[in-house]
Simulated assay, not measured.
Amino acid sequence: MASLTSDFEATCKVSIIIPALNEAAYLERTLRHLSLLQPPAHEVIVVDGGSRDETVAIAQALTKQPAPHFPLQVISSEQAGRAIQMNLGAAQASGDYLCFLHADTYVPDDLVSVIAQTLADPGVSCGGFISIMSGNLTTRWGVILNNYLKTYYAPLLFRPHLFFGKGLRLLFGDQVMFCRRADFQTCNGFDPAQPILEEADLCLKLCRLGRIRQVNRVVQASDRRVAGWGPVKANAIYFMVGFLWGLGVPGERLKRFYEDVR
């Protein structure tokens, strides 16, 4: 059985999609982390939303080097917006599984195996990780705990019928969400009109096809937003935006509380 599982993981075709906008400070390191994956990704697709820094040049330079050891594509989106960019990357992808990764987030080297093992269960439609948010000298334990628990308490509070009946859990962007490409297409992907919490919106659709699972593994995300806002303001904004979203406030109105930090 172990050898069969290993063979399946080795042939599991995972397409990693990275939406990027002015990510020159982080993108090269993220891509080099992906070159260490064992088994390797089927492909990595960077979707640029109109960067004004060296993001595109950095990604394109890596496509011409012997490493990373995976097919790396760089495509441009006419419009910026994570939902729009990730949909474009998913349309370009040829893998059986889609993994959506932020440009400032680092994943474990057995990412492909974790995805394969999680989605080998036909009752699971989507998965994500526990996000560890940290900077050079700081680990944001309070934010980490709240974000971990939010995966459970947000759907329990606002969609209890789906929490208990369909196994709904809400995953957010820094948790490295993954799903089957066929299920993503069935759900019509991310809502391009959602400027924020597009992953949570997709979870609401995917849970009708199977349970959402937060796997007991971690990824490391940059704390730049918390560092820019300060931890008290950041937690207040995260809580307020999540609460208002749960009450049905449109994403366009929520976005004004969630300015970009680069």
Rank of each mutant, 00 (worst) to 15 (best):
G127A: 09
P250K: 12
P195C: 13
L162W: 13
R140N: 02
A57C: 05
G189F: 10
L254T: 03
R32I: 03
V143N: 02
R52L: 12
V226F: 03
L145T: 05
N146R: 12
R211L: 01
N147L: 08
V47T: 07
V215Q: 02
A67Q: 08
D109G: 05
G167C: 05
R181C: 15
Y153R: 12
N22H: 11
A83I: 04
D109L: 14
V241W: 05
I115Q: 14
Y258F: 01
A80T: 13
R159H: 15
S113C: 13
L37R: 03
T186M: 09
N22C: 08
L31S: 10
C12S: 13
I84K: 07
L88G: 08
A80D: 14
T118N: 14
S3N: 01
V44L: 11
V215R: 01
K255H: 01
T151E: 04
A200F: 00
R217T: 01
P155R: 14
A67G: 08
Q85G: 06
R169M: 09
R82N: 12
W229C: 12
A90C: 10
R159P: 07
P66A: 11
F239R: 09
P195N: 12
P68N: 04
P19G: 10
A2N: 02
A227V: 02
L137Q: 07
I45R: 07
Y148M: 02
V114T: 14
A193S: 10
V261G: 00
F243W: 09
